[in-house]
Amino acid sequence: MGPSLLNENTRIIVIGATGREASQVVRESEDLFPGRIAAGVTPGKGGTTIEPNVPIFNTIKEAKAQDPRINLALIYVPPSSVKDAVLEAIGNGLKTVFVITEHTPIRDAAEIYLAAKNAGVRVVGGTSLGCFVPNVGRIGAIGGKDPSGALAAGGVVVISKSGGLTVTTAEMLKRRGHGVYFAVGIGGDMIAGTTYADLMDELQADPHVTALCMLGEVGGAYEEQAAEAVAAGRFTKPLAAFIGGEFQENQEGVSFGHAGAVVERGKGKASDKKTALAAAGRNVRVARYYHNLVDCIEELGVKPNLPDATGRVVQPKYATI
C-alpha cells in the first residue's frame, strides 16, 4: 500500500539524525507512525540511541548489516555534506533518497543527479519538505506534530516546489472535501532530483490517484516538462496547477538572466508555464489565484470524499470591523 516514494515496505534511515531538527522529526514521526524509521546515522555517534528506540550508527553500511531491509535515506546533514551523504546512500544500495537540507551547492546537485540517474536511484530534493501518505507514514517534518488537522486520506496527489504550500494546499483541499493520496515537497532547487514529470507515469498507472494538484514557481522548465507529459498523453487524469511568480514579470529590474534565457528560450517565466499547461490538455486547469486550485479540482469533476467543511465564503474568527 502506498506510492513508490513511501509505502508499507519503506524502512527509513535518517542521515544526520542526531542534529536538533532531525532528532525532533525522528521522535515526532515515531509517535505518529511507530517503526517506520529503522535507524539513524551520525558519524562518531554510533552506538547511541534516539529515544524511544531508534539506534544510531556511524555508517549506513553498519546500519544495513543490522537491518538489511533499510531502503530509504532521509538526509538532514549540512549543505556541504549533502553530496557525501547521498553518494553513501547510493553506494549502499538504497533506492530512494530525500534531501531535506536547503542550500545544496548547485554543482553538488548536478553531480548527485548524474550519480542517481546512473544508479537508478530516486532522489527527491534538495530543499524537500518530505512526503506524507495518510495511514502509511511520513518522511520529514511535513505536517508537524499533529498532521491530522491538515492532511486527510483521499485520492488527490499534491506535488509542490514550496514546502510551506505543500501542507497549506492539502489543508485547503481537505476543508473543501478532498483528501490526499500523498503530498510531497520536491523543493525549488534549480537542479531537482525529482520533478513533476518524473512522477507522472506512476500517478497515471496507480488507480488510487484521482487527480494531481501541482504547485509550481517561476524558473526552470519542470512545469513545462509536466505540460509536455500531459500533451504526449502520458498523464490524462485531472490536473489543477498554480504557478507562483507572475507578478515579478511586471516588476522593473527583475532579470531572467543571460544564458538562462537562451538555454531555456520561451520557458521559465510563470506566464510561459501557465500557457504551456493550459494548452496541454482538456483535463488541465490553471488557477488564476492560489485559492482557485480547489475550484479547478471541482470544475474537473473530481468527486470529494469528505464533507465540505467551509464552503466558499469563510467568516472571520474575530472581527472589529
Partner: peptide, 21 residues
C-alpha cells in the same frame, strides 16, 4: 483579538479555514 479590542484596532482575524490568498 483581545489586543485589537483593548487598543481599538479595526480588523478581521481568520485561521486556516480561509484560503491564504
Amino acid at each position: 483579538a483581545e489586543c485589537f479590542q483593548r487598543n481599538g484596532i479595526k480588523g478581521r482575524i481568520f485561521d486556516s479555514e480561509l484560503p491564504i490568498t
